[in-house]
Amino acid sequence: MAVGLAVLAGGSAAYTGWAGTSASRPVPVVGPNEPTGESAAEVPRPGAAEAESVRPAAPAPDDLPEIDYDPAPAGFPEDPDTLDTTALTQGLRPERRLAAYDAPGGRPLAFLMPAISGVELTVPVARREAGWTAVLLPSANRKLAWLPPGGFHTVPLHDQIVVERRPYRLTWYRDGVANSSWRLSLGQPGQETPLGRTFILGRTPPPEPVYGGVDIFALGAVPDDPDAVPTGLRGAHIGIHTWYHDGELGRSTTNGCIRLTSSGQRLLLEQLHPGTPVVVVDELPTPPPTA
């Protein structure tokens, strides 16, 4: 599905526009656990002892902001495992407006919606505690949102993208097995590609010829320093895309985006879906076998 979203131009000062439809230590990648794929409503009812362990959710005021493509509200906690490359194997899809909290039983800060810019939202599940579920927060870097039980269902996530900044390498994993690696261009000094875990939010058609006629993945991540990017790119997200030539692979020339070859991007577009986890690290302890 295409997203009506803006992503960084990746090296030129051109603005990608609202194209589309209407609307610190890395560890080796491991194989996934088998996801349940159960809807929250289908999970067996807990016994009395288990029910008491679920922390209650404070009522959420109706005037809380909704999490959309703009920067997420402040106050959400840091992702403590942001550089962990262990594959996240479950995605969460809201079935209605969900209050997002800063901790299990904590403060409601915003609403997580079933869709962003007309595309169904799938966010990777990062951890669980006291009956609550933590997901990677859209439109923010290295942040989690905590959700109480109910109002969502989970889906399996089989794929993962690992980006290494030092060797300029992207590796696609499926079920913990490395399939392919590509040489990259990454963010220039002052506009470095953000470290940490994020995910594919959606895809958008190429708005300009410099993208080689290949669709772009919009990620949940945003520039670490929004004021460092050119004025025309303010409010855009980090993207994965190709370019009209491959002469800058292995260099830091983009505005923070992840740029790979046209053939690599086309393959990923065929294989990957919204919600696919992406983790950016400096370098893996051991190069993947596809390096």
Rank of each mutant, 00 (worst) to 15 (best):
G118P: 04
E50R: 14
R166I: 11
G176Y: 06
S53Y: 00
L137H: 12
A9E: 12
I216L: 15
T89E: 11
P138V: 02
P114R: 08
T231G: 09
T89I: 01
T290V: 05
A41M: 04
L269Y: 00
D63G: 02
Y173G: 10
D63V: 05
T276R: 13
E120A: 15
L8Y: 00
V27R: 13
T154C: 13
R203W: 08
V155A: 13
T82A: 14
P167H: 12
E248V: 08
G91N: 07
L195I: 06
A110H: 01
E95L: 14
M113Y: 00
A14H: 02
Q191T: 08
G106K: 03
P226A: 11
P206M: 13
R165K: 15
V222P: 01
A14P: 01
V177F: 03
P287Y: 10
A103I: 04
E208F: 02
G212K: 01
A178M: 14
D224W: 02
R96P: 00
A48R: 12
H153T: 03
V162S: 09
S12C: 05
S180Y: 02
A110T: 06
Y173F: 15
R259F: 04
H241M: 07
G232K: 08
A19L: 09
F76Y: 00
I67C: 10
L195F: 13
N255S: 09
P149L: 01
A236D: 09
L272M: 03
V43W: 02
L8W: 00
D84I: 07
R142W: 13
R97Q: 14
E34Q: 15
V135E: 07
G239I: 05
A103N: 06
L92D: 05
A228W: 06
L184M: 06
T171L: 14
R107H: 12
I258P: 11
P26A: 15
P35W: 00
P226D: 00
D246V: 07
I67F: 11
P44T: 05
G31S: 11
R197K: 14
P26S: 15
V27K: 03
G213I: 03
H273G: 02
D227N: 12
Q90K: 13
P274W: 04
E78G: 11
R45K: 14
D68E: 09
I238K: 09
V125K: 13
C257H: 07
T36S: 15
E120K: 11
P61T: 01
W146D: 11
S139L: 07
P206N: 14
R166M: 07
G239T: 11
V119C: 02
G20S: 08
T286V: 08
Q265S: 13
A236V: 02
P230A: 10
V7A: 15
E42K: 10
R259K: 09
G275R: 12
A58L: 13
V123P: 02
N141I: 08
S252E: 06
